[in-house]
Simulated scan of single mutants.
Amino acid sequence: MFRRSHFAAAIAAFMLISAAAGAQEYPTKPITLIVPWPAGGSTDISMRAIAESASKVLGQPIAVDNKAGGSGTVGPATMAAGAKPDGYTIAQIPITVFRLPLMQEVSWDPAKDFTYIVHLTGYTFGVTTSAESQFKTWKDVVDYAKQNPGKVTYATPGAGTSLHIGMEQIASMADIKLTQVPFKGGAETNAAVLGQHTMLQADSTGWRPLVDAGKLRLLMVWTSARSPNYPNVPTLKELGYPMVYDSPFGIAGPKGMDPKIVAKLHDAFKKALEDPAVVATLAKFDMVPNYKNTEDYKKFVVEVTESERKVVDKLGLAKKTN
């Protein structure tokens, strides 16, 4: 018994030393960053720029793995279910990770299944229509929708996303009925509104090249102030809707990560946000750095979950409970 207890103690000590050494040496191989949206959209492009900068700090490549679907939740859910908490698999965490569990049964618990690392930025959202559309202003949309309930269709990157929730809030305030057409991401929503398969598109600034080229018309933005890139386009507040939507996001790993590894990742991504090349890429898509450290990010998760609960309840989108 004496020998066994000594042997067990020795094994436990060895494991602790190995874990500490592993955290100290981390990273020793490439890291996978799951981006839960299709390639080519504003999130994908900005996350690739951030990952490239952070990889230089960490001394290892960060490979982006696009896992689209589920309104941005398939990627994080896949990571939570199957990835080791060793710091070699992390994911962008969109706000739908906190919202969708309030609306339907899901396989993850945002409070328990993730290790939150760092909060990064948010989006400029806007509503566009084809340049050939009859809608010249948002008032044109409201007037048409009042005469044709449910006939105004709008593309979003998925049900339950901030774009979907935001549009439903706007519709409720305007006393109109709109019809959502969900897609997987910005490339698809761009194609839908450009081809006039939907009348409108509600999305982040992946639409910017098409707006700048005169192919899409930007009707409104959801920021607190007008975009410096589109000074003639009104905000929601100016149109009479007391809302600001920027759907902020950060990065997390699976639950149970070593705090020392979390700290290394946090520091690398924080430094990336200060990189002029990253700032320029974010500015291209009207995205502003919105840094929060690990502890503040954890608190933010609690706050945003409660805030989303109130919105989902108000819109009647909360999941039914027995």
Results as ranks from 00 to 15, higher is better:
F2G: 14
R4F: 13
H6Q: 13
F7Y: 13
A9R: 02
A12Y: 07
F14R: 13
S18I: 04
A21Q: 06
G22W: 07
P30A: 06
I50Y: 04
K56I: 02
V57N: 04
V57I: 12
Q60D: 03
K67C: 05
G69R: 06
A77V: 09
T78S: 11
M79W: 08
K84W: 02
A91D: 09
Q92R: 10
T96E: 08
T96K: 08
F98P: 00
R99K: 11
S107G: 13
A111M: 11
F114Q: 06
T115H: 02
Y116N: 01
V118L: 09
T124M: 11
F125I: 12
E132P: 03
W138D: 00
D140V: 14
D140A: 09
Y144P: 14
G150Q: 09
G150R: 07
Y154R: 09
G166F: 08
M173F: 07
L178K: 04
T179P: 01
Q180N: 13
G185K: 00
E188K: 03
V193R: 03
Q196P: 10
H197I: 05
L210R: 03
A213F: 11
S227R: 00
L236K: 00
I261K: 10
L265G: 10
F285V: 10
N293S: 04
E295I: 08
K298C: 10
F300P: 06
E306N: 14
R309K: 15
K310P: 05
D313R: 14
